[in-house]
Design a protein around this nucleic acid. Structure first.
Lengths: 152, 152
DNA sequence: GTGGAACTTAAACCATGGTTTAAGTCAAGA
DNA sequence: TCTTGACTTAAACCATGGTTTAAGTTCCAC
């Protein structure tokens, strides 16, 4: 279980280019990076787990600066627990806000999908555009009301 | 209901800087933009609705280039229905993928929130880190298994 | 009719998050 | 021994999505 990975292996494992891993290390996103005696980077399982964690933070929209700050606090140890707690709670709130926005965007697009399905079938956008409210499928009527869709 | 908005009004209404609206227009994200006789931009309710739609596309991660392409097709009329249909269906799939990723990221962060709540209470990260599986709250145990969280 | 606020443009500028390049090192196999 | 491929670095480069600046116009209130 103490298998070590070269940067190429790690890149393949994580599904990202090696250049990105170098960029992350240069920017302080990988703590305690080990090196072989000839200077090559070495990664263990913990490093990979850490980098997957960093990927989650990135997916959540956390800027690199902030991730680096978090890592700095992590390295500093137990004296920074409160600060790290604040950061992760903030991040959770940010994700929740993002999820709300994304769900709303999905509703919009759901409407558009229906719109063009109907338009494609009839050959013109006038068909879905002029369809009376009571002929709309329930979910589409709900979306149209919620998102205040009128003309488009 | 045929009230017209200046760019400042529209900016206030949409909650974005006027410079962004100019940038969008320059990049073809606003079809049929009207102008007052002195050259000032004029926006009606339809323009605002359109721009809210553009905002949804942006939230969904659609690049500006692609939004412009969509608008080009929209302007071209009913002959492009199939193409637009393809685009919105692709976009829906992209949003769904994004939602999945974001929910996974949320689980990770949820775990971290629990971790630091426990750490803060006891004063050390060792407490949550070494907590036996059967003492973990159900949701946390589930997340830890699903996300393969070991060391971090 | 004068000052100030709100608009116009093109062009320069900026931050973010990488990617690419150039020049060099090293280990292994033919 | 020589070549090949994977690595190293610093620095240059790039795309995206705006924002800012500079110089000029126009409307409105006083």
């Amino acid at each position: 279980m103490d298998k070590m990975y070269t940067i190429g292996d790690a890149a393949a494992e994580l599904g990202m280019p090696a250049s990105t891993i170098r960029f992350y290390e240069k920017n302080g996103l990988i703590p305690n990076q080990q090196r072989a005696s000839d200077g090559r980077r070495l990664f263990d399982e913990d490093d990979l787990e850490w980098m997957r964690f960093v990927e989650r933070l990135k997916v959540s929209g956390m800027p690199i600066k902030e991730i680096r700050e978090y890592i700095r606090l992590y390295i500093e140890g137990d004296s920074t627990i409160e600060e790290r707690r604040r950061i992760v709670h903030e991040r959770r709130a940010a994700i929740d806000a993002q999820l709300e926005e994304l769900k709303l965007a999905r509703d919009f697009i759901e409407y558009k999908c229906w719109f063009y399905d109907v338009a494609a079938e009839s050959g013109t956008c006038d068909t879905p555009r002029n369809m009376p409210l009571d002929e709309l499928p329930d979910n589409i009527r709900r979306i149209k009301a919620k998102c205040r869709i009128n003309r488009y």
